[in-house]
Design a protein around this nucleic acid. Structure first.
Length: 282
DNA sequence: ATGGCCGCGCGTCGCGGA
């Protein structure tokens, strides 16, 4: 039996959070829970500033697409976890897709790639930083819905060619009331409004599965807490970071958990990493 | 108690985040 760990983390500036990322990856490795692949969001840096070398020194290869100030996504893979033929930057990331095909966008929000791991059959990883949306009725919200519509089309097409898909990232959608600390106060608000939740549902209707909800979870488990109002101490959060898996992966999926530890560290990201484990019997 | 924070840029406040 071997395990593969896949994570998602909105780091809210990779420049600021690189030490946290490296520390977290190292601590996972030390605990014999090494992260094999992680999708990052909100890099907030241009490609020339991406810490390729620091991550390579930590044993990880990087695929990234940044921009100045806002957005930016990356997929980082543990070199040793890849098949020997794929253990360098030129060959690690196959079938790379940058942003959603056919959807004109200046904002760098989506990366997809196929990875060939030693432990399992190839996986199609789609890493998204879904638009925040600001508030229903705004232009940014319209953009969020258009982006979601384009993503739906893309994922539908991907499913027909790639059976083993992980759609991970910062969805900026809390799918159910149990994913919100105070559902009554949030009714109709951004992140929980009906059209957003309908889109989340539409991905489930495509057959994707919210890996987090496959398992019993502590009530009030969240992945994001506002920096203000002592939200983390009060656990006033929302669960908006998700790993959805295609049906082909359901039997292999054995856990999905939020790691709250890095949120407690000095100068943290406002998001916590979420980790999913696939078990492959061989 | 509807507020309090944080990161960024060419900035010393405004914007975006969620």
């Amino acid at each position: 039996m071997s395990e593969l760990r896949i994570a998602t983390w909105n780091v809210n500036s990779l420049k600021v959070r690189l030490p946290h990322l490296l520390q977290w990856l190292e601590s996972c490795e030390k605990n014999h829970h090494a992260i094999d692949v992680i999708g990052l969001q909100e890099l907030k840096l241009t490609d020339d500033k991406f810490p390729i070398k620091e991550l390579q020194d930590a044993g990880y290869l990087s695929l990234f697409m940044g921009q100045k100030t806002y957005n930016g996504v990356a997929i980082i893979v543990r070199k040793d976890s890849l098949t020997h033929l794929n253990q360098d930057l030129e060959t690690a990331f196959l079938q790379v897709q940058k942003n959603i095909p056919g959807f004109e966008d200046d904002q760098q929000r989506l990366l997809a790639t196929t990875l060939h791991f030693k432990k399992t059959a190839p996986l199609r990883i789609i890493c998204g930083y879904f638009p925040n949306g600001q508030a229903p009725g705004t232009e940014k919200f319209d953009y969020k819905l258009r982006w979601l519509g384009a993503l739906y089309q893309f994922v539908q097409a991907e499913l027909s060619t790639h059976p083993r898909i992980v759609l991970l990232g910062d969805y900026n959608i809390a799918p159910q009331d149990e994913d919100v600390h105070d559902p009554a106060a949030w009714v109709g608000q951004n992140l929980v409004s009906e059209p957003e939740r309908k889109f989340f549902e539409s991905f489930l209707e495509l057959g994707l599965i919210d890996s987090f909800r496959m398992f019993p979870q502590a009530p009030k488990t969240f992945s994001w807490w506002d920096y203000r109002m002592m939200a983390f101490r009060r656990n006033a959060g929302v669960r908006i970071d998700h790993l959805l898996i295609s049906p082909a992966l359901k039997e292999e999926c054995v856990s999905c958990t939020v790691d709250r530890e890095p949120r407690k560290w000095e100068q943290p990201s406002d998001h916590a990493p979420v980790v999913m484990t696939l078990k492959h019997s061989n």
